[in-house]
Amino acid sequence: MPKLYLIPNTLGEQEDPSLSMGSEVKDALAGLSHFAVENLKQARRYLVRWGLRERIDQSEFIIHNKKTEIESLIEAESVFKSGNSIGMISDAGCPGIADPGNKLVQLAHRLNVEVVPLSGPSSIFLALMASGMNGQAFAFSGYLPREQDQRISAIRDLEKRSKTEGSCQIFMETPYRNMAMLEDLLKYLSPSCKLCTATNLRTADELVISRNVAEWKSSKKPDLNKKPTIFLIQA
C-alpha cells in the first residue's frame, strides 16, 4: 500500500541532518523513488547532505508549491494510484507547518493513503521552548498582513487575545521585513507585554531574545534583517 512520508528538513542549510533527525528519516529517503518538494535544487542538496546522492538520478520529483499546486496534486494522485509512495520534503523544518504541504496531506487522506509524519526540527516549537512563554496555551498565526493599517490591527488583536486567554501568540515575517515588524511591535504593544524574537535557529549565529516591550525599547536592537525569525508575544 502506498504511503505519504512527511520528511522534515534542517533549519540551516549547512547543518548535518543527522544531528537533529533520527535514522528513520534517512531510511525513508533511501527507500523512496518519488518525492514532492518545494524547490528541486534545495531537495537535491538535502539528499546529498544525507549521503544519498545516488537517489537523485533514481527518483522522480514533483514540484509542489503554491504556483504548481493544481498540477502537482494531479501528478501525486497518479503516483499514489499506481501503488507508489511519496516522500514530501519541506524546504526547512516540518512539512505541512507554515508551508504548502497540507494540501498534499489532504489528498492522501481522501485516497486512504497512510500518512507517516517523521520527527524533525520546527522553528515554531523551538522558539516557543526558548521564549519562556506559555507552552500550555499558544497559537500560531503565520504571516501578519503587509498593509500597515491591517498589520497594526492584527498586532493589537493578538495582544488582546493573549491577555484574554493567557496565551502565547506566535507569528512570522518575510525576513527582509523583520526590522519593520520589530519596530511596529515595539510601537503598538503595551510596555508590559512580553516579546521574543528567535532568529536563525539551529545555526551558528542563533539568537533568542525574550523581554518585555519596555526593556526592548531601552536596549540595543538586534539585526534581524534577512534572517529567518519567529516572533512571540504574551500579554
Score class of each variant (00 low, 15 high):
Leu29Cys: 07
Leu185Glu: 02
Leu158Thr: 01
Lys81Asn: 14
Asn200Asp: 09
Arg156Trp: 03
Leu52His: 04
Met181Ala: 02
Leu232Ile: 02
His34Gly: 01
Gly93Val: 08
Ala130Met: 07
Leu144Asn: 03
Met179Gln: 15
Gly51Gln: 07
Lys217Ser: 08
Asn102Gln: 15
Ala130Glu: 06
Met21Phe: 05
Gln169Lys: 01
Gln58Pro: 00
Ser72Thr: 13
Pro175Gln: 11
Cys196Ser: 09
Gly87Asp: 07
Arg151Gln: 12
Ser23Trp: 01
Lys160Asn: 14
Glu13Asn: 06
Lys41Ser: 13
Arg55Val: 10
Gly93Ser: 09
Gly101Arg: 10
Gly12Tyr: 04
Phe80Leu: 12
Ile89Met: 14
Met179Pro: 07
Ser33Gly: 05
Leu32Ser: 00
Ile124Ser: 01
Ala180Val: 07
Ala76Ile: 15
Ser72Met: 13
Lys220Pro: 04
Ser18Trp: 03
Glu77Ile: 08
Asp57Ile: 01
Val213Ile: 15
Gly142Tyr: 04
Ser131Tyr: 04
Lys66Asn: 14
Thr197Phe: 03
Ser218Trp: 03
Leu104Gly: 10
Gly120Leu: 07
Tyr143Ala: 02
Val105His: 11
Glu71His: 15
Arg55Thr: 11
Asn134Cys: 14
Asn102Gly: 06
Thr229Met: 03
Ser219Trp: 06
Val48His: 03
Leu19Ile: 06
Gly12Arg: 01
Gly96Met: 10
Ser141Thr: 00
Lys220Val: 08
Leu40Ser: 03
Pro2Arg: 13
Arg146Pro: 00
Leu6Ile: 11
Gly96Pro: 08
Met129Leu: 11
Trp216Tyr: 02
Arg151Leu: 11
Ala214Phe: 09
Tyr5Phe: 15
Gly93Tyr: 08
Leu118Asp: 05
Ile63Cys: 12
Leu47Ala: 10
Pro228Asp: 05
Arg146Ala: 08
Leu52Lys: 06
Ser153Asp: 04
Ala108Gln: 10
Gly120His: 12
Gln169Glu: 14
Ala43Ser: 10
Ala92Trp: 13
Val37His: 05
Arg53Phe: 01
Thr68Glu: 13
Leu126Asp: 05
Ala198Cys: 03
Thr197Arg: 03
Ser18Arg: 09
Arg202Gln: 10
Met172Asp: 01
Ile97Asp: 04
Leu144Lys: 00
Ile209Leu: 14
Ser72Glu: 13
Tyr143Gln: 02
Lys26Met: 04
Glu60Tyr: 11
Glu77Pro: 07
Lys227Cys: 03
Met181Gly: 02
Leu107Ser: 00
Leu4Gln: 07
Ser20Arg: 08
Ile97Phe: 07
Pro2Phe: 13
Phe171Lys: 02
Arg53Val: 10
Ala214Asp: 14
Tyr143Trp: 05
Gln14His: 14
Ser162Gly: 14
Tyr5Val: 07
Lys187Ile: 02
Gly31Arg: 05
Leu128Met: 02
Leu186Cys: 00
Leu207Asp: 03
Leu47Lys: 06
Ser23Cys: 01
Ser90Val: 05
Thr197Glu: 02
Val213Cys: 09
Val105Lys: 13
Lys226Cys: 11
